[in-house]
């Protein structure tokens, strides 16, 4: 393949690597200091649990960064019955 193709491939790979690396830089302090503010079900100091979620955090870190900044937690899922119960109690 020509030089342009190689350059495009190299750039894309660099972008993906950079994104994941930035994720890791965010995630390591996050699992130590911030995680309990976003999900109170994270209790105690289970190190293996924190290591297990690191790869996923490196992908989805912007979601957690936004929740951390806004002081929000994860939402509760909405099913047809939950919505119907809600509209029945607040008509």
């Amino acid at each position: 393949m020509d030089g342009v193709g190689v350059a495009i491939a190299e750039t894309l790979i660099k972008i993906v690597r950079g994104y994941l690396f930035a994720g890791l830089v965010f995630s390591v302090p996050f699992v130590i200091f911030g995680i309990q503010r976003v999900d109170p079900s994270v209790k105690g100091w289970n190190v293996l649990f924190r290591v297990l979620i690191l790869p996923g955090l490196s992908v989805f870190w912007p979601l957690f960064a936004v929740r951390l900044v806004r002081g929000k937690r994860h939402p509760v899922e909405r099913t047809a019955h939950r919505l119907a119960a809600q509209s029945a109690s607040h008509p």
Partner: peptide, 19 residues
């Protein structure tokens, strides 16, 4: 497969929501 394996812990189910 990487994304699926990385989000296989229950933590992800709760924080991404089931849908």
């Amino acid at each position: 497969f990487f994304v699926m394996a990385a989000t296989s812990h229950d933590f992800w189910l709760v924080n991404l929501t089931a849908p």
